[in-house]
Simulated assay, not measured.
Amino acid sequence: MRAAVVNAFGGPEVVEVVEAEVPEPGARQVRIKVAAAALNPVDAGVRAGVFGGAGKRIGLGWDVAGTVDAVGVGSAWTVGDQVVALDYGMVKPLGTHAEYVVVDTDAAAKAPVTVDAVHAATLPLNALTAVQALDRLELTPGQSLLVTGAAGAVGGYAVQLAAHRGIPVTGLAREADGELVRSLGATPAVDAAIGAGGFDAVLDAAVLGEPALAWVRDGGAYIGVIPQAQPGSVRGVRTGAVEVSADGRRLAELVRLVDEGVLTTRVAETFALDEATKAHARLAEGGVRGRLVLVP
């Protein structure tokens, strides 16, 4: 099968599409024939060597939508099931940017029925990150939330999830993205218009760090999206960062919200798997709204 990998760290040019053995599922695992797999900033980090692994062949891709085509002993899935899944892991020999991928049975959920596989592939990593970050904030209906990077993939899902929970949301984004942010359920804002200490909590999807911390009230909460990279606590503000985890049960809840119209999946552009280098170059250009998706 074909798979996108890196054998050396660097820019988009180091991404290679190589021939690899089709993986076999072990106990409580499933093999998915990949229909679509999103490209995320974490893949660029892996490609650049941010997470280590020098000297190894490293597979790319965390998100997958596709069809179960083989199951291991103890799997809850059946060949032919349409699923989405998160294949967590920074340094792994194969990722979801391939024709087949093996994941733990508990990492998968039934695919949405209201969107195609390309759109479904944008859900697992970004929506799970958003909902797990919101859970860490422990907000109750009526408390105020600022989401930075509200026009991005994680930020957009966080806005919609928080609004669905009855939490008033302000979305920090570029002025040009104001209408998009409003359509997701937040009051749009630019940083110059935000006063210090005005929010019960900040979900910092844009990874602003200390500037975002200043917008939290005394005794409030801040959550980032890069593990161990949150700013230190000041003014009694509780700080932390979410490290996303594969959770098929929670992913199934997010799928339900897609099918109910609560969550909006956004695709910026699709690329063939053989165009993985081109997709990485587009991601590096910035300004992407929605996700780039690879299709084998």
Rank of each mutant, 00 (worst) to 15 (best):
V237M: 13
V83M: 00
E24W: 13
V207D: 15
R289C: 12
L254K: 01
A221C: 11
A48K: 11
D106T: 08
L86H: 00
V79K: 11
A281P: 02
E253N: 05
I32M: 01
A162L: 01
A229Y: 09
V22W: 08
N126T: 15
A153F: 07
E19S: 08
P112Y: 05
I223S: 13
L213S: 06
A127N: 07
D177A: 06
A150Y: 02
L263E: 01
V18I: 15
V131T: 14
S75W: 01
A206C: 04
R31C: 15
S144C: 07
T265Y: 00
R291Q: 15
V169W: 05
G287M: 08
V131I: 09
V34D: 05
G197K: 11
G171W: 00
A229M: 15
A153C: 10
Q82W: 04
V68D: 07
G72M: 08
W77V: 15
A121Q: 01
Q29W: 12
M90Q: 09
E285F: 15
V169P: 02
E19G: 11
L294D: 11
K56M: 11
R217L: 14
Y100C: 12
W62F: 08
I226D: 03
G142C: 09
G261A: 03
A284Y: 06
H164T: 00
A37Q: 10
E260C: 04
G89T: 11
K110H: 05
T129C: 04
N7L: 10
G59C: 09
I167T: 01
V267H: 03
A162K: 06
V71P: 04
D200M: 05
Q82R: 15
D259V: 04
A173V: 03
R289V: 14
D218Q: 15
K33V: 07
A70Q: 06
L180K: 02
G171P: 02
T239C: 14
V42T: 10
V91S: 11
H119C: 08
G74S: 11
K33Q: 13
K33D: 03
A4I: 03
L134H: 04
G185M: 00
V202Q: 08
L125V: 05
E285T: 13
E16M: 13
V262S: 04
E19I: 00
G53E: 05
T67A: 05
R282K: 12
Q82N: 12
L292C: 07
Y88P: 10
A214M: 10
